[in-house]
């Protein structure tokens, strides 16, 4: 139990740092649902199933769709 929490925390930090410091925006946008999914598993472990469902549906599902749409709409200034 403790080891799983520690491993997930380390994965969370690695994903967040990758999301911030990667050069291309596409990688950052695609790493965002992974970040959300790790948070969902952590919430289930910490006994908060309602929060986990909301996080899975809204943050990891719908907000990623918003980011992908924005990334698609701003394609002509992607190189900067």
């Amino acid at each position: 139990m403790d080891m799983i929490v520690t491993l997930l925390m380390i994965f969370l930090l690695v994903t967040a740092f990758f999301m911030v410091f990667t050069k291309q925006t596409a990688n950052a946008v695609i790493a965002f649902p992974i970040f959300g999914s790790i948070l969902v598993v952590l919430f289930v472990i910490f006994q908060a199933p309602s929060v986990a469902m909301a996080e899975a549906v809204i943050t990891a599902g719908l907000a990623t769709g918003f980011f992908v749409i924005t990334f698609n709409k701003t394609k002509d200034s992607r190189k900067e």
């Binding site: 999301m19 911030v20 925006t25 950052a28 946008v29 965002f32 980011f67 990334f71």
Partner: peptide, 11 residues
């Protein structure tokens, strides 16, 4: 990048 800044808000 503005998209990265919005990602920072979500973090």
């Amino acid at each position: 990048n503005l998209i990265k800044i919005v990602l920072g808000f979500t973090i």
